[in-house]
Write a protein that binds this DNA or RNA. Sequence first.
DNA 1: CATGAATGAGCGTTCATTCAT
DNA 2: TATGAATGAACGCTCATTCAT
Lengths: 209, 209, 209, 209
Amino acid sequence: MTKTEKKTSRAEQKARRPQEILEAAFEEFTVKGYAATRVEDVAARLGVTKGTVYLYFPTKDVLFEEMFRHMSTPFADLLASVGTLEGSTADQLRALLLLAYEKIADDRKTRELLRLSLSEGTRFPDIVDRHHDEFIAPLIAAVRTLVDEGVASGEFREGAASKFPDVVASSILHVAVWRLMFADRKPIDGPAFIEAHFDLALNGLLPRS
Amino acid sequence: MTKTEKKTSRAEQKARRPQEILEAAFEEFTVKGYAATRVEDVAARLGVTKGTVYLYFPTKDVLFEEMFRHMSTPFADLLASVGTLEGSTADQLRALLLLAYEKIADDRKTRELLRLSLSEGTRFPDIVDRHHDEFIAPLIAAVRTLVDEGVASGEFREGAASKFPDVVASSILHVAVWRLMFADRKPIDGPAFIEAHFDLALNGLLPRS
Amino acid sequence: MTKTEKKTSRAEQKARRPQEILEAAFEEFTVKGYAATRVEDVAARLGVTKGTVYLYFPTKDVLFEEMFRHMSTPFADLLASVGTLEGSTADQLRALLLLAYEKIADDRKTRELLRLSLSEGTRFPDIVDRHHDEFIAPLIAAVRTLVDEGVASGEFREGAASKFPDVVASSILHVAVWRLMFADRKPIDGPAFIEAHFDLALNGLLPRS
Amino acid sequence: MTKTEKKTSRAEQKARRPQEILEAAFEEFTVKGYAATRVEDVAARLGVTKGTVYLYFPTKDVLFEEMFRHMSTPFADLLASVGTLEGSTADQLRALLLLAYEKIADDRKTRELLRLSLSEGTRFPDIVDRHHDEFIAPLIAAVRTLVDEGVASGEFREGAASKFPDVVASSILHVAVWRLMFADRKPIDGPAFIEAHFDLALNGLLPRS
DNA sequence: CATGAATGAGCGTTCATTCAT
DNA sequence: TATGAATGAACGCTCATTCAT
């Protein structure tokens, strides 16, 4: 308990403050929504007073926007790794979708950002576009790339899935929304659901023999 | 019976008030969410003062709940009509899904109720269950019935879709969410999307030759 | 049930309306006070709507004032009758005080008017004076007259009671206030209390032998 | 410890706030009654805004109740001192009653609490009991003790005053009520009134020669 | 005479934001 | 950096009063 230690830990703590606040804000905003969340509640989660929050963020609006930005972690990077996989296009597609399940349906953070995009999109139009650019567009683009590759290689039949790769992935959204709505009250068997999804989607992509 | 006529027309107008209010409330609540909507704004839409709203609904909470109930129109009835269709199971499934697109993705009312279920579900737990019982459960049940019929008749292959009929229909949710998020900013070509959906899903269900 | 009967009874009822309203107003105002009483509650007691009250009384203020006037029934007249009694001055004084007990402490109407004078006197200064002129002054004057008579006749000793006849009667107020405060929660044995009062007061007035 | 000094003086000011508010509340509530008093008026008396009041008291109800408690200062203690007096029982009784006049009839605070007990007793039943336990019961008990002592020593005659000591003291209430009703409009000559009261009451207690 | 829908002013309470310490 | 007292603008809800029927 030397002074140096204290100082260090304090300095570290202070450097962490903004992030702590953003994470506390995330919890509050996702549970109550923007309007019903009080800045004081965010502060209380950290054991500080609301004045402290205003030390780091000038308004509740800004706090919300920066929280959203802070919690949005890049998805495109993850997707890039899929391109390096070996195996059939179908395998790669499976791997890609699995990744998307993890990122979108299993990850509470991303799920809640989806909720906020839907509920606060009117007040914060930017977050919707951010959500699209960050999660939806990269996923659809990646799916499209694989579908097109599969079609080119003859592994997949030509079909409308090239135009709307969304239809290949939309069950992921289904799980995400399901969990947002029902949480633990109507649990969903993730792996089994995914299996059903893959079963239908890949069979739908394969050429009729 | 002149008096009766007069009375009727006025009585009608009074009888219409609650519905007018509920519909105005729908517009406000869906745009701003529960917390950010002011009772006065709801009233202003009708050109009345907030006192008038309180003449018909005792609290903002009740107004919201009754609005939700009022805007939730039965979906199960519609689905029942599908059972009477002729043609292949695939055709019936197509017809069913088409109906679901109309009810869930195309109908602004239903779409916005989905948004409210997601955004206000914490504050009004009942509406989530109502939404499930009203829209989700009947649709999934109907899809399951058809899928099972198709499997029984040999028209569809046996697969996980029986266990999770959701995966057959989840693209409908995708369109609904897409429109909630992007409205007219990123329009979606409905018919083409539906075609892509049917193309993938039905091919996914058919037996490998 | 001829029409004539109905008409008559209706006409009678209408003629009674103002009084009915005033009496309903009395009940409400005494229980809740002026500010907390709603005109609608007064109306509801009669099974009519508030519009009806406004048919007879232009404002809530006027309703209150007229209610107070209506419930204030003359006390001076009663007192006058004491003057005609026979017997000793002490007997007459006893009779007078007994009358005052009946009028002030036992009569709910008068008791509640005292409460209203105390609680609403600021808003309605007139009612305080009315209450004084109606109940307090006549009583004190009557007591003074008897005391003076008793002193003149040698039945009472000379004392300060002539100057402040209030002290002879103030126990009556005590019972009234007691009942206003405690109602049935701390009942008071009226006759026994009165006996104690008379015992003390009359002995206090008699000359030291 | 300069800092301490500064802090203390500021801390003192903050510590004083609740009392300042309670006292301002007392003034407003006694003049207008509970329902007609606006929290904003209480605040305005201190030159602050109503938000400040809510910093210290969660609701108007609580503000009223705590105000009542704050203004109720113990009376029993005072009465205890009477027991130590020397002199005849009559002298002691006189001293006791004098004390009660000071506390109940002369002290605006106590007088107004009586008014509030009568006017707001319905809404705040507790305050009536508090007023009884705080002022009425101790006084009556003290009077009873002295009366009984006097009877035991033969200084007072046996009479109903032992059963209802109230009758010995009720003129005090008379003055209190009088002042509540008429304030300065009908001033009462306190000392002279008291003299009259004592004259009657003590003569009433003494044995007939 | 009676109704009750409608108004508008008002009040209790909340909360984002500021600022002196 | 952190506090928390204070503000002021809202907002939910109420109610005296009006008026068309």
